[in-house]
């Protein structure tokens, strides 16, 4: 029952990492996970289906369209395959193998981002301080969303939910730090799922309202549009470009680089600033405004 120790408040981080690492090792090193042909073949089929369909764009009003990316299909279909009763070859065992394998595959994602960061190092110096410093603006979420999450009854889930915008790199960081079955990871998974589904639409609306109401520098909106995923970036760019005609090239450049920064430098801000800050604020606020837990602490699985 490794999870018991995860709730130990005095010494959370090192213990968790150790336990989770051993658990991943047990899962993927002992059980010959590559032998689970059904699992990997299913993933292959899901990926082929998803890539064949490609992104779907649903226009809502002029300038606002919801885009659904293939990555959303595979995740949702994977979940559906697990939950669907007739699919006998994706069961709890495969789910555990997938979980162990996923911990290894985070490495591939991180490696890709690291190579992109390395390549774009020179652009960092050219683009000036605004791009870098706006990354610190992301920390606003901790000050605003964490107290609300606590008032709504979240416990340690709130640490995962409010430290960042919760896209793939941040999910990877939180899962790596706290372990797959920790409350923090459940929090960021919830944020990720909800954000994937409503995030693109929401940021598009938010941008339309912001550019018409707030008299900020056009480049500031361009940089802010890169805070989330690539599809969120695109959704936020639409209204920004429409609001500032004649600045298309610059706005696109800043938005693209800001998104690249969010995906590369962003994870280091999460590791070294956002997560420690969120934890500090959590332990300060939780005794004061925390409610009764709405999700019971679970033992093991």
């Amino acid at each position: 029952m490794g999870e018991d120790i995860i709730t130990d408040k005095n010494n959370p981080t090192n213990e968790i990492q150790h336990i989770y690492r051993e658990k991943t090792d047990k899962r993927i090193l002992k059980k010959n996970p590559w032998k689970d042909y059904g699992l990997h073949f299913t993933v292959l089929v899901l990926v082929i289906i998803a890539e064949l369909i490609g992104p779907i764009k649903i226009p809502i009003t002029s300038g606002v369209e919801v885009s659904i990316m293939p990555l959303l299909y595979t995740m949702v279909l994977g979940l559906v395959f697990y939950l669907a009763k007739p699919i006998k070859w994706i069961q709890r065992k495969q789910s555990r193998v997938a979980e162990g394998a996923m911990m290894l595959f985070i490495g591939i994602l991180i490696a890709k981002l690291a190579v992109s960061s390395g390549q774009s190092m020179h652009l960092l110096f050219e683009m000036g301080p605004a791009l870098l410093l706006q990354e610190l603006g992301h920390l606003a979420t901790i000050l605003i969303a964490l107290p609300v999450a606590l008032l709504l009854g979240f416990k340690r889930e709130a640490i995962g939910m409010t430290n960042s915008i919760g896209r793939e790199p941040e999910v990877a960081v939180v899962v790596d730090k706290y372990g797959f079955n920790s409350p923090e990871s459940r929090g960021i998974f919830a944020l990720f799922i909800v954000g994937t589904i409503i995030g693109t639409v929401f940021i598009s609306f938010l941008t339309s309202i912001s550019v018409s109401l707030i008299p900020f520098h056009p480049y500031a909106f361009a940089m802010a549009s890169g805070v989330g995923s690539a599809s969120m970036n695109a959704a936020s760019l639409g209204p920004t470009l429409a609001a500032f005609p004649g600045l298309e090239t610059q706005i696109e450049a800043f938005a693209g680089f800001s998104n690249l920064l969010s995906f590369s430098i962003g994870i280091y801000i999460v590791i070294f600033l956002a997560l420690p800050l969120t934890e500090k604020l959590y332990y300060f606020l939780e005794p004061k405004i925390g409610r009764k837990a709405i999700v019971e602490e679970k033992e093991g699985e």
């Binding site: 299913t42 899901l46 994977g78 395959f81 697990y82 595959f105 994602l109 793939e168 079955n181 709405i294």
Partner: peptide, 30 residues
Amino acid sequence: VTVFLAYVGIGMGKSWNEFKALGLRAIIVT
């Protein structure tokens, strides 16, 4: 990410009931 999330989707199947419990509050926080 597309491949990665397929594994994540299957891996998170075990926690589905907890996600459902998060519900509307999770949407507000998000």
